[in-house]
């Protein structure tokens, strides 16, 4: 319950080596070029914001990073090693994501959702699954205690046995984050984590992302809420019609007339005013 006016700036962790990088990623859907030669680098301990108007290609970019789409050209690498074109393997390598239109497993409980996230980190073969021997019980207990920690971490312990589909909307988004964290990612990609949330929930999410960063996970966030992005991120990228238009610190991006013009398609002054107004309202 922090004050509204001075939302505490979490101390920025030292930004380390480059961890995730994309080189000239282009994605063509038939006649539509959803991404055009996009390059970016994410460093350890960094939070990057990705903004842009609807249909700019932000989600498509995430899909290319996670192997869900195979880019028409360009490459993606984690710690210098190219990533495979298979979402399951990418997750195994240490990139986790959430989805813009929540994709939980609706008729599994919150706990089971997070347990599925443990899939890649659990050592439990089919035979062990069948026989339920001591090794099985150990790995199961370990996974459950880790799951309990994660639910606690995102503040959903009380919903542990609730079906995901019955959770309030904001909590579903949080559960998706917990599920992603269960895969022990070094990079977390969040696609509009505060969409549909009220101001209070948004603030809680902001603090949650800081906490995640402080635990050593680099984060990329897509969000339309500019106030949220500018107060959260170390760097912001602006994507417009598949092109990386501007890249810089929140202050640089906020003041850039091209962004204001292209992003909002309105005369710069007016929009500038609107952005500042948006930031002042809680």
């Amino acid at each position: 319950m922090s004050g509204k006016h001075a939302a505490p700036e979490a101390p920025r962790a030292a930004i380390g080596q480059s961890i995730l990088s994309a080189e000239g990623v282009t994605m063509q859907f038939g006649g539509l070029r959803a991404l055009n030669d996009v390059s970016f680098g994410l460093s350890e301990g960094e939070i990057i914001g990705l903004i842009g108007p609807n249909g700019a290609g932000k989600t498509t970019f995430f899909n290319c990073l996670t192997g869900l789409y195979a880019p028409t050209s360009g490459s993606v690498a984690l710690r210098g090693t190219p990533l495979p074109q298979d979402p399951a393997k990418v997750t195994d390598r240490g990139i986790a994501r959430t989805f813009q239109n929540i994709r939980l497993f609706p008729s599994m409980t919150a706990e089971e959702n997070v347990l599925v996230g443990r899939h890649v980190r659990m050592k439990q073969g089919p035979l062990s699954s069948l026989l339920h021997g001591p090794a099985f019980k150990r790995s199961e207990a370990e996974a459950r205690s880790r799951t309990a920690e994660l639910l606690e971490f995102v503040g959903l312990s009380r919903f542990s046995d609730e079906l995901a589909r019955n959770l309030p909307y904001g909590d579903q988004r949080r559960l998706e984050i917990a599920r992603a964290l269960a895969t022990e990612p070094s990079v977390l990609l969040l696609d509009e984590p505060t969409a549909g949330m009220n101001a209070q929930e948004t603030e809680a999410t902001r603090q949650l992302i800081f906490k995640i960063r402080d635990l050593g996970t680099s984060v990329v966030v897509i969000e339309h809420d500019t106030k949220f992005i500018f107060t959260l991120c170390d760097r912001v990228l602006v994507l417009v019609q598949g092109e990386l238009l501007v890249e810089g610190t929140p202050d640089e991006v906020r003041g850039d007339p091209r962004v204001v013009e292209a992003y909002l398609g309105a005369p710069p002054d007016e929009v500038e005013h609107q952005i500042h107004a948006a930031e002042e309202t809680p």
């Binding site: 997750t91 939980l104 497993f105 599994m108 899939h119 439990q124 699954s129 026989l131 996974a143």
Partner: peptide
């Protein structure tokens, strides 16, 4: 036994949402 195991949960996850299941490393 299978239903209440890593494998069983993976099956159910696939039933629920195959893309999300893949994104979870299954």
């Amino acid at each position: 036994n299978l239903k209440n195991s890593r494998l069983g949960r993976a099956w159910i996850a696939i039933r629920e949402d195959e893309d999300a299941a893949r994104a979870m490393g299954i």
